[in-house]
Design a protein around this nucleic acid. Structure first.
Lengths: 225, 225
DNA sequence: CGAAGTCTCACGGTTTTCCGTGATTTTACG
DNA sequence: CGTAAAATCACGGAAAACCGTGAGACTTCG
């Protein structure tokens, strides 16, 4: 933990959370020149970040989604329990759909994929400080392309199509891709595509997660014995 | 399809179902010398076998569990719809636990793993003809060792242990093995072992199937929204 | 004490899933 | 007739699950 006071009065209080020291320093130097920042603290773990909540004001969090002690989403939830109006900027190396979906579901204020130009992070934080949201091009590209209607319909999840539902039921029965494709008279590749669509629509990380969410949302009936 | 009448009056009517011609012929010659057999028919697919139900008496079915047009278990179910008292002898190359569990659940009359001595098949059919059940040593070995209580308790499935339940919940949340192990402070290997136990106890083929069965049996709560 | 059960861990190999990407055809609708 | 969604297929690489097997530590219960 490390706190750097700043001369600017009434400025924002930033907290950077990342387990990688180098990244931490990089971010610090990148962001310290931004105007309107009063304090700039760093934490290497989720627990450290939560501890900081008691000592500094912490208006804006810049969070690496993959942390050693807890998953970044858990950190976000716990920050919001204490500081519901804190702004969250997320940096991540993961580009998997489910991560991006989840970020959208969490209504974070900005997302910058780490592969992007570091300046984007600076931009993102600047935007957030001005009360605006920011999502890097790469995030928008991946998320928008495959999820237009979802965004259009607000936060609602998309319902699976007829064919997807057939695949879904196969998965819930424990069938492999090959078994499903044989039963539906389509290729393995197609089944995989349907599974991918399903996981996208449900924001699931894998088939087990998919089945769980499908049951929760009533797309698979559980015989209540 | 092929029907061979036999001189023996009031003898049994056998149907052999296997998609592999060589195996079919091998079985035919192996079994044709058994006393007490009136007719011996063969089928290469599930549909052929079902069609035979209309033309021959069919007391005993010798079924290869992996068939081109339908899964052997489906065939068993459909045979039983028409001929509930038909006796089922299963030959399979699969030694995966879930197959063995399922065979046990289906209360088939005999099981011979194909890796076994062919004479065992003869023995199995002979036993079944005498009204007894038969399970080859290899099946018993695999199934007994890991599933004593289950058999002792009749058809009841075994409940997961406390630790297994924790792993199960992680799986249902879509966590990977590594994520679960990190949260429970145990090794990946241990989590895998627990998952294997769970799949054994639930007779599940994979994690998706496991989640589904766990929900069905009430080990995972679905928030009924 | 001994047997059974639980929890832990290791290892090597195979199969399946997962992921991104891009493309074509078919269907449905205004 | 366009356009958008749905359904189909392919491919290559990476990650994860799956499988069998064996084994040590610790607990619990008869």
């Amino acid at each position: 933990m490390n706190v750097t006071p700043n001369q600017e009065p009434h400025g924002a209080s930033l907290v950077i959370v990342d387990d990688h020291g180098l990244v931490l320093e990089g971010m610090r130097s990148l962001l310290s020149t931004l105007p309107g920042i009063e304090t700039l603290s760093t934490a290497r773990t989720g627990s450290e970040a939560l501890a900081l909540l008691r000592t500094v004001r912490a208006d804006v969090f810049i969070i690496d989604i993959e942390l050693p002690d807890m998953d970044g989403f858990e950190l976000i939830r716990r920050i919001r329990q204490v500081r519901p109006r804190a702004r969250i900027v997320v940096g991540t190396m993961h580009e998997e759909i489910w991560t991006l979906c989840k970020l959208a579901d969490y209504s974070v204020d900005a997302v910058v994929l780490k592969a992007s130009d570091p300046q984007l992070l600076r931009h993102a934080v600047a935007s957030v400080l001005e009360g605006q949201r920011y999502f890097c091009p790469r995030f928008r590209e991946v998320y928008d392309r495959l999820n237009r209607r979802r965004r259009a319909a607000g936060q609602m999840y998309e319902a699976p199509t007829v064919r997807e539902l057939e695949v879904l039921k196969g998965i819930a029965r424990g069938w492999t891709t090959t078994e499903i494709s044989a039963r539906l008279f389509i290729s393995d590749n197609t089944v995989e595509t349907h599974r991918k669509s399903l996981m996208l629509k449900f924001g699931a990380r894998n088939s087990a997660d998919l089945v769980m969410k499908a049951v929760e949302r009533g797309f698979i009936n559980v015989p209540c014995e």
